[in-house]
């Protein structure tokens, strides 16, 4: 993608995001969120984040095969445990990277 295309892409996301943030604040009393959409929004984080995490964890081999017992899956499982126990981004990041580096140095 060229530099110009990147800027246009980011501008589009930026404007769209600003509209989402401004929506109800600007049009208070005139806009209403349908009830089903309101309930659906509660499940956006869990489904999108899981959809982002799982493929990049299991599809790590250079031969693009799905691997269960790769350094990456083990590192991700450790990080998930740490995330659950500590709810801290920094500890999750450090533990996951540490396990990955450790396992990679053996293989």
């Amino acid at each position: 993608m060229s530099e110009l295309e990147l800027w246009l892409l980011f501008l589009a996301v930026g404007l769209g995001t600003f509209c989402l943030r401004l929506s109800f604040i600007q049009f208070h009393g005139q806009l209403r969120l349908p009830a089903v959409l309101n309930r659906a929004l509660a499940y956006v984080p869990a489904s999108v984040l899981a959809a982002l995490v799982l493929p990049s964890v299991v599809n790590s081999g250079a031969d693009a095969e799905l691997l269960l017992l790769s350094p990456r899956t083990l590192a991700a499982l450790t990080a998930a445990l740490v995330a659950w126990k500590t709810k801290n981004i920094l500890y999750t990041l450090l533990s996951g990277m540490a396990v990955l580096w450790l396992l990679q140095s053996f293989s």
């Binding site: 509660a42 499940y43 984080p45 869990a46 984040l49 899981a50 982002l52 995490v53 990049s56 964890v57 990456r72 590192a75 991700a76 990080a79 998930a80 995330a83 659950w84 709810k87 801290n88 981004i89 999750t92 990041l93 996951g96 990277m97 990955l100 580096w101 990679q104």
Partner: peptide, 23 residues
Amino acid sequence: SLDFAIPLVFLALLVPSVRNSAC
């Protein structure tokens, strides 16, 4: 392998977002 930091950050956001069985 810092590209692995991306899924790890998402994981750190994902785990607390699972608040009930529907999530």
